[in-house]
Nucleic acid binder design. Structure first.
Lengths: 130, 130
DNA sequence: CAATACATTAGAATCATTCTAAACTGATAT
DNA sequence: ATATCAGTTTAGAATGATTCTAATGTATTG
């Protein structure tokens, strides 16, 4: 991501100091899974001094613009994924860690959806033991 | 479920008045997806007068004994499933409703799990549009 | 560079869930 | 039966992630 300001403007987001810092961290080319908390910790490390409220606002803004995916893994916190392509995950509860599955997986034997309902997307979560 | 008291005892749970009422509702032969809130509403309807704390405790106790499955669908609340067999779900966000998929589905193209990790179980969630 | 629409922030509010500690009850032994 | 006691229930407080509020700050536009 060379020009973050341009990137933010393209997505109808004012490139404020805080958004630039957060976008630079999130969209550095390495896919990430973050929660408000883990992101806050990273930003603290780089002494960015961004308030929690702004972190929540920004994650939400990025999500609204389709720059992040929301993952429902456990009910304790919300995970955001910088990989917005359709993909699946390994999940280690023990490590509280998600790992992308980029392979092209197929699900067979799926029954018809209920009347008047259409399938939107299929999500596979592979739980790891240890 | 004919003898709920016996059933509870078999699972090392004292058959208290509250647990009997809740177990009777949950294990009546029809699989259910409940949250503390929806269960509380049902119990209110039948004027059971069971406190929220007990509802949480009981769901937890039943879960600990393997009588319920926990589902992580969204981060707003915890869902419990009376169907403890391995199975998958349709989910309609709009209706906030889960539907069991009992068909025997297969997932192909799964990559190897990360080093030193074993696959525990595979969960497929089919999101519905409308 | 002034005006203004949008952003940031600290701290309060919210809401599902968990905790606390006092009152209660099912099981067991007498 | 009844006393005992470990296990339960409960109201209400506490917690913790997230959202809201409303005051202050800042990017954009003309």
């Amino acid at each position: 991501m060379k020009d973050i300001k341009h990137f933010l403007r393209q997505n109808s987001l004012r490139p404020t100091k805080q958004r630039v810092i957060i976008a630079n961290y999130l969209f550095d080319g390495v896919n990430k899974h973050v929660t408000a908390e883990t992101l806050s910790n990273e930003l603290l490390k780089m002494k960015a001094g961004i308030s929690l409220a702004t972190i929540y606002n920004t994650l939400h803004d990025f999500y609204e613009k389709g720059l992040l995916k929301k993952l429902m893994i456990n009910s304790e916190r919300i995970y955001f994924d910088t990989n917005t392509e359709h993909h699946h995950h390994f999940y280690s509860k023990k490590d509280q860690k998600l790992i992308d599955i980029n392979a092209d997986m197929k699900v067979s034997g799926l029954p018809k959806p209920p009347k008047n309902k259409k399938i939107n997307k299929i999500e596979v979560l592979v739980h790891l033991d240890n």
